[in-house]
């Protein structure tokens, strides 16, 4: 498959009056169309900034970033973005929240709205207001809203961070299902090693100050993926070691 994302020698500096912070340093990353990539790192490693660059929400950087072989000027419908908060407009019902996001010629396409709500398992909630939904449901509406716009790529910025463990696992399953069915390239930013390994066919490990890619690792958990068993544990341990390699090895006592 062709590369949908090509990033070369990308640097991003946040400047304020007092100081400069190198958010991203020398990022090289290519992502194949149709893949599922996890970006993982601790806080301040620039993973969200990298995702925002890919989504076109940050355009002030040095270096090269091509989306589908073309430079990116700003955010757009074909680069779906799921924020950490669901970001539904509180004054619009679920269906109108999706309608709000659609291009003019599709605003009246109720079938499209219904279809995408069905895809995230929320049939029957068309007329609900966001306050009537749980956090997990609201995030699923946000996913349906992104999918209704038929994006080429779906960018997820710690989308399940605020949810409880069971809801999070359910949504992870749903994302994988949607990825299989819709064949959309997905990039998820997370600080959860299990989530990164379980979802991503490729895991990008980032380290902070300055934000750098430390390692890019392929993960093959087979199909369907399993959260248990040797391949998962091995892959997770390997990522785990990336984070704690600098830490002291526990003292072994020789008796």
């Amino acid at each position: 498959m062709a590369n949908i994302i090509e990033i070369k020698k990308l640097n991003k500096v946040f400047r304020s009056k007092e100081n400069e912070v190198q958010a991203l340093e020398n990022i090289d990353l290519t992502i194949e169309e149709g893949s599922f990539v996890s970006i993982i790192g601790g806080s301040g490693c620039g993973k969200s900034t990298l995702l925002r660059v890919i989504g076109g929400l940050e355009t002030d950087y040095e270096g090269e970033y091509l989306f589908d072989n073309a430079p990116v000027k700003g955010p757009s419908r074909d680069k779906g973005f799921i924020f950490q908060d669901h970001r539904l407009l509180p004054w619009l019902t679920v269906e109108n929240n999706i309608r709000f996001s659609l291009p003019k010629e599709k605003k009246k396409d109720d079938a499209l709205i219904r279809e995408n709500l069905e895809l995230v398992g929320l049939t029957g909630f068309e007329k609900s207001y966001p306050r009537q939904l749980s956090g997990g449901m609201a995030q699923r509406v946000a996913i349906a809203r992104a999918l209704a716009n038929k994006p080429r790529i779906l960018l997820l910025d710690e989308p399940f961070g605020a949810l409880d463990a069971i809801t999070r696992m359910n949504l992870q399953e749903q994302m994988l299902k949607i990825w299989h069915e819709e064949k959309i390239t997905m990039i998820i930013v997370t600080h959860d090693i299990d989530e990164a390994v379980y979802l991503g066919g490729t895991v990008v490990v980032m380290t902070p100050r300055p934000g750098r890619i430390k390692r890019i690792q392929k993960v093959d958990l087979g199909t369907p993926r399993r959260r248990t068993g040797t391949p998962f544990t091995l892959a997770r341990d390997e990522i785990y070691r990336e984070f704690f390699s600098d830490a002291e090895i526990p003292i072994e006592y020789n008796i």
Binding site: G55, L57, G74, P75, S76, R77, K79, G80, F81, F83, D85, R87, L89, F100, S101, L102, P103, R145, N149
Partner: peptide, 12 residues
């Protein structure tokens, strides 16, 4: 302002 960012993503 996050709502305006959202509107940008969907080219409203």
């Amino acid at each position: 302002s996050k709502y305006f960012e959202l509107a940008q993503v969907y080219e409203v």
